[in-house]
Every structure is written in structure tokens, then in C-alpha cells.
Write a protein that binds this DNA or RNA. Structure first.
Lengths: 257, 257
DNA sequence: GTTGATTCTTTATGCCGTAAAGTATCGGAC
DNA sequence: GTCCGATACTTTACGGCATAAAGAATCAAC
């Protein structure tokens, strides 16, 4: 299931996301943890195990129990929100426009793609309800800054920003989850794929005849980067070609009316 | 967390997906259930509760215990695979090309968008590892059939098929999860949104100055369909405008070399 | 009538997030 | 210096989940 962003107390969540340095504290034992440390540990655990990580795992990585985290963070959902926004802090907040908007958007998309590759669990955090954290804002601001330079009206730019986001996210998901699922069962993704399609061909031998267009689509293949495995090659090729088409569409809109 | 497709025994999964009518049975009590009935019940429950539905809920809807399901289906993951493929059966398997590829793709995208709207949980099923069911194949075959008529080479079409899929999926997710999250907390999404952004503006009053381009992007708004709530209006506008840009990009590729 | 395959229920295991209650540690007030 | 109350953290416990294991009921074939 997907973890929805921000179902807890809105004030508490937003304060955690936007907080400055914070909190001198008066009485009581000195804190052995901090929100920052917990968020870092959470990211590390999620990088290994995905969003299905447990609070116990995060606590243990910090030498404490799961319940210790609840002193700093209201619950797992809010922790995921914080992890998400922290991850977005890895990305640049502006891109040079010297060569125009197109190379800048391309770089933005590649940076985003790589960030998703480093932290695949981010793709499982709902993007519908924005986490509304500062770094998420900054990332979108960076893309918006590039696109505003096209001179297109806001109405059209909103659709474009969405399209780029969806595309990068989707393309990244294809590859990230392929890797993750292989890891989950202990199989390499290649093996998984071959096992499935072998069985499929055995049960449904005339697959190519039943779905001729899909079969046609699979023709005309050559490895983009021979050092990469099959599925990643595929994903990379689709990412580049798809992005090119999308950018062509934007170019058309800029050129026209 | 996301439910990954097909982690069980590949042979069993694929047989379930592609099985014909199946199974006379010899001794033992007559089955009170069937795979079909379970899949239907699963879809009904998931439509209400999302992918976090429990096997108990599905069993009870059929007047049985959770464990009864395991006679027919290896586990929850496989059930979700079956539900996914069954849902894809709602979509047309071909589109007329009388007016060319562009209106056909537009209709495909709208049908898909609406199907996601009816069954939002589908958006949470991993799309990385295709479920490899017959109806999923058929849906993609339909899109491929349209796009092959452009005459573009497979290399390029694969990226385009991906881009369209990702875009529709992403756009549908934005709206579907907005609705779902509202339902989860019992708030309407409008209220949720206003509560969050009110707190945000209170804590960070000069938001518009910190992210000027985002602020600029939000200008130039007018409701597409006044009968719809705010967020849905937004999503619909972005869907239409984004799709237009994407199709323009394809048109450019068709016209050019 | 008996055997054995099949359906379904019962029970139990081991996860999960987190509520509640208890313990230890400290700063400030007196 | 002593005590109060807030804070940090642990322990224990609860209800929920998927599903393994074992048992009860049902029927066809011999």
C-alpha cells in the first residue's frame, strides 16, 4: 500500500518540515537522538528495504527501541514525509539557462531520475498530496524557473510541469521496481523476467500472433549501453526517447502562438 | 507500501491469469467459491478501501473466512495481480483510426484515466514488472496498434508508449489519491488542503517570495468545469493540457524525418 | 463402507504500528 | 541540598495483518 503524506496533525507536521534549528530544552535527561538523526537512519533503512521498513529497524540502527522515535516524530507517516523532503534536498535548486530551457530541463530530468534511482522508496510516497516541505518546493521551483523562461502562460506550464514530473517518475519507477522486485525474491531481474516469459510462452505459444502490434514494437532493438543489463538498457532508451518527444512538444508550444 | 506483482511461483501465477474455464473436480465437497468470485469481491473491497484491504474483508464479503481464499489463490499478491488484469478487461481492445491516430490516442488516454478513477487502487500496483495478464496485454496492444499507424520506428514508439502510460498514470494518481486521502481521514480534500496551506502560510508567511516561480505558475487560473471541486478542476486541466503537449511532440516526430 | 482427495474452519505464529505505563535523568525553585 | 516536574527512553501490551498447520466436514470412486 502507498503511504499517504501528512495524515497527522497538520501543524505538527509542517513545523517539523520547516523548523529552524529549534529547541533548547529545560529539564530532563539529555536527548540521545534527534529528528535529523532519525530521518537519516530512516533513509538508510528505506534505501535497503523499501517503504516497508519498520520503526523497529530504524530504532535499532540508532541503538534504541522503536518507541524512542515517537519522542521526536509523531508516527511513521510523518517520518516518511520528513525522509521524502530530506531526499529532495539532494537536488540542485537552480539550473543555468545559458543554452536555453531545453538542456536545462533535460538536466533537471536526469538529476531527478538519478535521485529516484538512489532512493527508490521515494517513488512509493504518494505524490498526490504534496508533502509541502521546503526542499520539495525548491525542486519544483527549479523546474518552474526553467520553464517560465519559455514565456508560456501559467495555464499551459502547469500541465507541462505535471507531464515532466509524471514522465520522470514513471520512467524511474519502471527501472527501480524492476531492481527492487529482483532483490525481494533474491532473483536477479533478468532471471525473473526470463522465468516468467518462458512459462508464458509455454502456456500461450502463439503470443506474438495474438498481440501482433506489441510484437512489432519489440523489433528494432540495439543496446544503448552494452555494459548495462537488458532491462536497464530498455529503461534508459525509453527514458531518453520519451523525454525527447515530450520536449519536442514543449518546443512546438513555444514556437507556435 | 507497494504490492509487487508476481513474486510467487511464476507457473501458478501465469496459469491463473491465462487459465481457460478449468477444473472439473473429482472427490470432496463442492466448491462454494471460485477464483472469479474472489477476484470480483477483491475488486469491490479494494474500490472501497484501497490496496490495504485485508483478506478477511474479501472472505467475509463472500460469507467465508480469510483462509478459504487460499484454496483458490496462492496469496494476496497473486490475488492483486488477478484483480489488476480483470480491471484492464473493462477497457476497449481497439480504437477506430478513421480520423487518424491523434483522436484515437486521446480516447485511449481518457478511457484509461476513467478506469483509474473507478479503481484507484490499480495505480498502486507496481507497473514495473508487468503482471503479464491477457487483458493488460490487450490494453497495451490497443495503444500500440494506434501508434504503429504513425509509421514511426519501434525504437521511438517504445519511448512514446511509455510516456503516454506514465503521463496518464501520473495524472490519474494526482486526482485519485487526493480523493482517497481525504476519505482516509474523513476530511474532504478541499478542507485538508486549506488546513495544510493555512498552517503553512502561518509558519512561512513569505512563501510567495521564497518561491516566486511557483507563485507565478499559479496565476492565470479559470475553472474548466465549475461543477467540479477545486482540486479536480486542476487535475483535469493539467491532464488535458499535458496530453496536448505530449501529442504535439509525437506529431512533430511523425512530421519530421 | 471405506478410502482419500478436496473444501473450509480453527488455531497459532510472527510480524507490524503504536498506546499506556513505568523508570531513569536532569534543570530549576526553594 | 532537596525535591518537583518535565523530559527521554524502555517495557509491556493490544489489535491488526498475512498465512502456516492442523483438524473437521464432505463427497466420488472403488
Amino acid at each position: 500500500m502507498v503511504v499517504y503524506a501528512g495524515q497527522g496533525d497538520p501543524r505538527r507536521s509542517i513545523e517539523l518540515l520547516w523548523r529552524g534549528s529549534v529547541t533548547e530544552h529545560r529539564p530532563g535527561p539529555k536527548p540521545g537522538l534527534s529528528v535529523d538523526a532519525i530521518v537519516d537512519a530512516g533513509i538508510a533503512v528505506a534505501d535497503e528495504q523499501g517503504l516497508a521498513f519498520s520503526m523497529r529497524a530504524v530504532g535499532e540502527r540508532l541503538g534504541h527501541t522503536a518507541m524512542a522515535l515517537y519522542t521526536y516524530v509523531p508516527g511513521k507517516n510523518e517520518l516518511v514525509d520528513l525522509m521524502y523532503d530530506r531526499t529532495m534536498a539532494e537536488l540542485p535548486t537552480s539550473y543555468p539557462l545559458d543554452d536555453g530551457w531545453r538542456p536545462a530541463v533535460t538536466r533537471w530530468a536526469h538529476d531527478m531520475w538519478e535521485c529516484y534511482g538512489r532512493h527508490p522508496w521515494v517513488l512509493q510516497v504518494s505524490q498526490a498530496r504534496p508533502v509541502l516541505g521546503p526542499h520539495e518546493f525548491a525542486v519544483t521551483e527549479a523546474l518552474a524557473a526553467i520553464l517560465v523562461s519559455t514565456g508560456l502562460p501559467g495555464r499551459q506550464l502547469r500541465g507541462i510541469v505535471g507531464a515532466i514530473n509524471y514522465f520522470v517518475r514513471g520512467a524511474a519507477q519502471t527501472i527501480a521496481e524492476a531492481r527492487a522486485a529482483g532483490g525481494a525474491t533474491g532473483e536477479a531481474d533478468e532471471e525473473w523476467w526470463y522465468a516468467r516469459s518462458a512459462v508464458l510462452l509455454e502456456i500461450e505459444p502463439d503470443l506474438a500472433k495474438k498481440f501482433p502490434m506489441l510484437h512489432l514494437l519489440e523489433q528494432d532493438r540495439e543496446p544503448v549501453d552494452p555494459s548495462l543489463p537488458y532491462l536497464e538498457n530498455d529503461a534508459l532508451e525509453n527514458f531518453r526517447n520519451g523525454l525527447r518527444v515530450l520536449l519536442d512538444g514543449i518546443e512546438g508550444a513555444v514556437a507556435k502562438p
